[in-house]
């Protein structure tokens, strides 16, 4: 259900406050405001491409990451996507484990965007890896190994 303009102002107000506070503390918010605002109201599984197909550059990337994965792109991911077209970005994202794990269905999209083999395999593996017992064990591992595991299933 798309939010109305008055409601969007609430989200935008909070976003701007956060951005300003970070700036005052010498930090940057690596997220485009238009991209964020367009991610508001995204459904957990069936995501319509129409909701963000008109966005460009940073706004498109921030929005796609937030819509699909509820996170911001890492520096290396931004770098990787900098030279890609929208279609290529969507294909790149659909090949991530998280896309399969979340069972995302991109609708209203003319591009062929489906999880690749890597994404599918990691998606299946994540079912095993996400068991609370295994996660508890993983949390006792050194930080470096934990980060590696997180990165694999990101």
């Amino acid at each position: 259900m798309p939010a109305n303009e008055k409601d969007l102002k609430v989200y935008a107000g909070l976003f701007e406050h956060v951005k300003e506070t970070l700036k005052e503390n010498g930090q940057m918010l690596n997220c485009d405001e238009t991209g964020f605002i367009n991610s508001i109201g995204t459904a957990p599984k069936k995501i319509s491409y129409k909701e963000f197909e008109n966005l460009e550059g940073e706004a498109f990337l921030s929005c796609a990451f937030l819509k699909f994965f509820q996170r911001l792109p890492l520096d290396e991911e931004k770098e990787k996507c900098a030279s890609l077209s929208k279609e290529e970005i969507l294909k790149y994202l659909s090949n991530k484990a998280s896309y399969s794990i979340r069972g995302i269905e991109l609708t209203d999209c003319t591009y062929k965007v489906k999880p690749g083999l890597r994404g599918k395999i990691l998606g299946k593996a994540s079912v095993v890896a996400s068991s609370p017992k295994l996660r508890k064990t993983a949390k006792k591992m050194p930080a470096g190994i934990q980060n590696k595991i997180r990165g694999t299933f990101r």
Binding site: D7, V10, Y11, V18, T21, L22, C31
Partner: peptide, 26 residues
Amino acid sequence: ISIDYPQFCDKSDVMNFVDYLGAALI
């Protein structure tokens, strides 16, 4: 804390919290 002290928080968590708090306020 994510809204008033975002400098101490993971930025993706902050964005998710903005979504959550905004919805709660509305």
